[in-house]
Simulated assay, not measured.
Amino acid sequence: MDQAKSRKVEKGSPFLRPPTLSRAAFKALIEQRGWRMADVACRWSIRPEHLSRIAADEDRDLKWDDLVRSLPTLSAFERSCVTAARLSLIPPKPRRRKGQPIGEAVQSVDAEAAGAAVQPDAPFMWEHADEEDEDDAFVPGVDGFRYRSYLSRGSELVAVQEIDGFAREHAILVVTATRVGVDPGGGAQEEYQCESATGDQRWFAPDQIDDWLVSNGKMRDLR
């Protein structure tokens, strides 16, 4: 190979094989573009927990870094509009407040706060990329143990939006305990006790984690 061609190869190689974004850089770039993680997952038609795993994997395919870099930059107003649109396309599932009969579940306060029009039959469905072999535990509509092999005591979670009276957007929570509870339909589900930086604790069901939280891929030693 002559010297001129060698220089071209040396100059061109970083464009084909650039270093993978770190976990922090991947998430920071999304934030710099003005996006919430849950909204990005909706744009890409993947589950929020799938995006969380992608962000935490520094051996991820280069295409994900390219997708993050290509996100349009949103203003604060556009960001709120995107979130409202997501909640309209994918309404949060009815929630049952403590002491409320199972048949009288109420909609998440996040949908109300965003002014989203909640519809019983949303046209949008989560999809997975053809090349991704997703575990059954991450397919929508499965039982309430879909986070069982994904979250455990010590796992850190980040709030993708404010959680009423408990955590601000971007706050980091840590899973301190798990238990088996009952979902609004009477089925079994695993629930996760999360603790905020102030020491407040709250139990979250899988559906609430879908709506409000994503993993940052980090673990804490709670011994």
Rank of each mutant, 00 (worst) to 15 (best):
I209Y: 00
W44Q: 09
D207K: 02
P94F: 05
V158Q: 12
A114D: 05
A4T: 05
A116S: 09
I54C: 04
F138H: 10
Q107S: 11
L213F: 03
L67I: 01
D66S: 11
D211P: 00
R146M: 07
G199Y: 12
D39S: 09
L74E: 02
E156Y: 12
V82I: 15
W35Q: 07
A38Y: 01
S52M: 05
P123C: 10
R148Q: 05
W203D: 10
S155R: 04
A205W: 10
P48S: 00
E190W: 08
F145D: 07
M37A: 10
D164T: 13
Q3I: 15
S155T: 15
P123S: 10
E78P: 00
V82W: 07
R97D: 15
S196G: 04
A137L: 13
C81A: 06
P101V: 07
D133T: 13
A129T: 13
V158G: 02
E10F: 01
K93D: 12
V82T: 04
L89T: 01
S88I: 01
H128S: 12
K11Q: 09
N216I: 13
P94A: 09
E156L: 07
I163P: 08
Y150M: 02
G181F: 06
L87T: 02
R168V: 09
Q3T: 11
G186T: 14
S108C: 13
L89P: 11
F145Y: 14
R95A: 09
R36C: 03
E132G: 04
A24C: 05
R47D: 12
P92T: 05
R33Y: 00
I46M: 01
E112T: 11
A137F: 02
P14I: 08
R95D: 11
I172F: 05
D121N: 13
L16I: 04
E78R: 11
V82A: 06
R168Q: 09
D200W: 10
I90L: 10
S52L: 06
R36H: 13
R36D: 14
Q208N: 03
P123M: 04
S155H: 04
E162S: 11
F138S: 12
D133A: 02
E127T: 15
S13V: 05
C42T: 06
L87Q: 08
A76K: 15
A122Q: 03
V142P: 00
A56G: 08
V118W: 09
R47M: 14
S52A: 14
L222S: 01
L67E: 10
S6A: 08
L173A: 02
L87P: 02
D136Y: 08
Q201M: 15
V139A: 00
S152F: 06
A24I: 13
P120L: 08
M125A: 10
S13A: 05
Y192F: 14
R7H: 08
R36K: 07
S108H: 12
V109H: 15
P120A: 00
D135F: 01
E195I: 09
S215Y: 08
A197Y: 08
C81E: 13
P184C: 12
A188E: 15
S215A: 14
A122K: 11
S75G: 06
R179N: 13
R43T: 05
R7N: 08
F26H: 12
F204A: 07
P140W: 13
A122G: 07
V182Q: 13
G144V: 01
R86S: 09
H50K: 11
K63G: 09
V175W: 03
L71N: 02
K27F: 03
L67C: 01
F15W: 09
D135H: 00
D130V: 15
R220S: 12
A28Y: 02
S149W: 04
G103H: 11
R202H: 04
